[in-house]
Computed example of a mutant assay.
Amino acid sequence: MKRGLVVALSALLLAACGGGGGDAAPTSSGVTVDTRFGPVTIEEPPTRVVALGWSDAETALALGVQPVGASDWLAFGGKGVGPWAEGLYQQAPTLLGTTEIDYEAVAALQPDLILNTRSDNDEKKHETLSKIAPTIGAPKDVIPYGTSWRQQVELVAKALGKVSEGEEVVADLDAKFAANEKFDGRTAVVGAYFDGKFGAYVSGDPRADFLKALGFTLREDVEALASGSFYVDISTERLDLLTADLSVLFPIGGDATALKANPLVPEKALILEDEALVNAFSSGSALGTAYALDHAVPLFTTALG
């Protein structure tokens, strides 16, 4: 560990956490949250929250809490959140790294709570973060980045002392799913094109689980390729694996030109080009999922004829 981090951590032990920059204090304290790394006790209502996990910042915002620091997983820039969370920050957070954590930068924000509920589940990272502040990791028995939007809301809400608000967020999104069209009996696959390569998302990934929640059945032979991961590579020789009643594909880090031009891509594939929709579909947050339901489901219906 760098000497600078040791100094920063030592300073935190002497500093009084809770000075400005966070939202109003939640209404409860002394809660214990169960995670894959064991129970985490939060003695006082957190006021300086750092959100490192995928969509943790959006989840905190949905519950009325503004993180002072956050990881920008989908490279939004600005305040680090999608348009579905526009206006929820009064003051932009300090944007932090994603897969590589700058522990000194995290410590410098003097957090009294760190959210890392959807991550790579690295125990060493968790141990280091826990020396800075109580850290909420993923729930038990989920694959890396496999925390569902529901689990994330429940974990974050309990840690923030916002349980009733969390229940309301869950109920609202459940109602939105229930009000949408169901596609029972239809098969689906969701894939991506990146750097000239194809892949597909499987159960445990928010994109795949989104389709399942709408009644779609994921291709079993694609699911069988998974080995503790949310994504599987698909060779160009096996692009037939991307064929289903509904094939949803989108490019990552570029436009859809090459994807559209590839003759091996399923002819009736729905290729998503709207960057906001792709990001909402990929966010896995309650806010992003609600946006995706409004904008993606009509496209699914049209694609199915």
Results as ranks from 00 to 15, higher is better:
Glu275Lys: 03
Ala175Glu: 05
Thr187Ala: 04
Leu304Asp: 03
Pro298Leu: 07
Ala286Asp: 13
Thr41Val: 02
Asp122Arg: 03
Gly87His: 06
Lys140His: 07
Gly228Lys: 11
Asp174Met: 05
Ser29His: 05
Asp172Glu: 14
Ile101Trp: 09
Glu154Asp: 13
Gln91Ala: 11
Asp72Gln: 05
Leu5Met: 08
Ala296Glu: 13
Ser10Tyr: 06
Thr187His: 04
Ala57Gly: 11
Pro26Met: 04
Ile114His: 00
Glu165Cys: 10
Cys17Ala: 07
Thr147Ala: 05
Val7Glu: 08
Ala24Phe: 03
Ala105His: 00
Gly228His: 08
Ser227Asn: 10
Leu241Arg: 00
Tyr201Val: 13
Pro67Tyr: 02
Gln91Gly: 07
Gly254Glu: 12
Ser148Val: 13
Ile132Arg: 00
Arg238Ala: 10
Ser130Gly: 08
Pro46Val: 11
Thr257Gln: 06
Gln90Lys: 02
Glu220Tyr: 04
Gln90Phe: 04
Phe37Thr: 15
Tyr193Trp: 11
Thr27Arg: 08
Arg219Cys: 01
Thr99Asn: 04
Ala303Ile: 09
Leu113Met: 07
Ser203Thr: 15
Asp205Cys: 07
Glu273Met: 06
Val81His: 05
Lys212Ala: 13
Asp72Tyr: 02
Asp141His: 02
Ala105Asn: 03
Asp56Ile: 12
Asp174Val: 15
Ala60Phe: 04
Ala15Ser: 04
Phe250Val: 08
Ala261Arg: 00
Leu259Phe: 04
Pro46Ala: 11
Lys79Met: 13
Ala200Arg: 00
Gly228Ser: 06
Glu165Pro: 14
Asn180Met: 12
Pro46Asn: 10
Leu270Thr: 01
Glu123Leu: 10
Val142Ala: 05
Ser71His: 06
Gly38Ile: 15
Gly4Asn: 06
Gln151Ile: 13
Phe198Asn: 09
Glu181Tyr: 02
Gly137Arg: 05
Ala244Gln: 07
Thr236Ser: 07
Leu264Asp: 15
